[in-house]
Design a protein around this nucleic acid. Structure first.
Lengths: 224, 224
DNA sequence: TAGATTGTTAATCGATTAACAATC
DNA sequence: TAGATTGTTAATCGATTAACAATC
């Protein structure tokens, strides 16, 4: 099914955005679209869209373009959204709670089946219909449930020990909100990082750079 | 002060990570470090570190390396963390609340001075010592307070109208958690996106691709 | 001084854009 | 058939890596 080797990171990162735009078009009742038209709406080149799509196969038709619905589902399939990887959330603080309540895991290839926290004050409560358990109970939980992914919403300081434990118990896929650099410490794992602090600092850079320009020249840098 | 033009997006995105690692070294009492040593710890090349840093100036010393503390502060300054840009948060749902409570704005060049939400059920409460106001009160608030940044934690459906309003009131910098594509609609703004759904889908891709390999070959793709 | 490591130039690699033949 | 638009190859552009002279 998935036979895609050597797809570059930039291409992979663009897929969700294609998916989003195609979903909107679908909602608006648009049935077909050319790479040119899509590129105009998304603010990139038609060439890039065609190159990106052709990493995975020829989904279009010469002289016609792409079927919106077809392409939408193809990309969803490429992304693997038709899976339902069982995931557990570690850390039921503000961020963890927000992630648990906020995300549509089911539409994104996952399902949340467990929530754990070290703090006794936080255990026992229900979030999204899931009871928050103590970290001590993870091992037992994992022996009863297949778990593919751990979502790390713990402070950096707590992360090393927790990950060490999870790794030992066989978890190899991580959605990492902590600022612990997982990939540096473990080689055979899959990590997707969400570093909010980093993002905020990048924003700070952009604002600072735009507002304190060199004397002769007030150009903006519109990167990303 | 900030005289950095044409710094590429990849370089800018790496700066927070340098800052993070140097902060750790500083905490651990390390006083000097070579590009080689740092590259080993971070999992990239020494060449890249030297190239990146030399976009902004020569912070090292031949034969010695870099002073950890000096470089840490230099990068903090490059990022603009010594600012205190006043920011308002739009949307006090789970995500907005988490962002408000969770982030150390002061360490990242910002300060949170206002929170707004459309839902009357959410207004009146205090989050992080800040009373949540109704969206109707934004205009008045902005006439009394300098605000540089809006943090958008609103649903995609609500975003266009809200941004239209904020833009009209002069807000040009956005930390965007909504899935509304700001940059496509407004050209003269600065946006830093946090698209959690996109990140989750990228994780889904990576897992799917690693677990359903081609017949003859189970190579992993360790991108990013 | 000799050793180490930077700053910087040159070489390589990869990603994006342009062009166009294939074809619906 | 003629027009349109893809899939794909070639050209360009940019980012990363390697090399080395400068220098602390």
């Amino acid at each position: 099914m998935h036979k895609y080797e050597n797809i570059s990171a930039p291409v992979i990162k663009r897929l969700p955005r294609y998916y989003r735009f195609l979903g909107e078009l679908l909602d608006n009742g648009v049935t077909r679209i050319s790479s040119r038209e899509l590129s105009d709406r998304m603010g990139l080149t038609a060439s890039q869209i065609r190159q990106d799509l052709n990493c995975f196969g020829g989904f279009g038709q010469q002289g016609y373009g792409y079927t919106v619905e077809g392409l939408y589902h193809e990309i969803g399939h490429i992304l693997g959204l038709d899976h339902s990887y069982p995931a557990i959330l570690i850390g039921a603080g503000n961020l963890g709670k927000a992630v648990a309540v906020h995300m549509s895991f089911e539409k994104r290839g996952f399902r949340l089946i467990g929530i754990f926290d070290n703090d006794p004050e936080k255990t026992g409560f229900e979030i999204r219909g899931i009871t928050v358990f103590s970290m001590d109970q993870i091992e037992q939980f994992l022996s009863n449930h297949q778990v593919d992914v751990a979502i790390l919403c713990v402070p950096k300081t707590a992360a090393p020990e927790i990950v060490d434990h999870l790794y030992e118990l066989g978890i190899r896929n991580y959605w990492n909100f902590s600022h612990y650099d997982l990939a540096v410490h473990y080689q055979d794992i899959i990590v997707e990082n969400v570093h909010l602090n980093d993002s905020l600092m990048v924003l700070c850079y952009k604002i600072t750079d735009a507002n304190e320009p060199p004397e002769q020249n007030g150009k903006r840098q519109l990167s990303d």
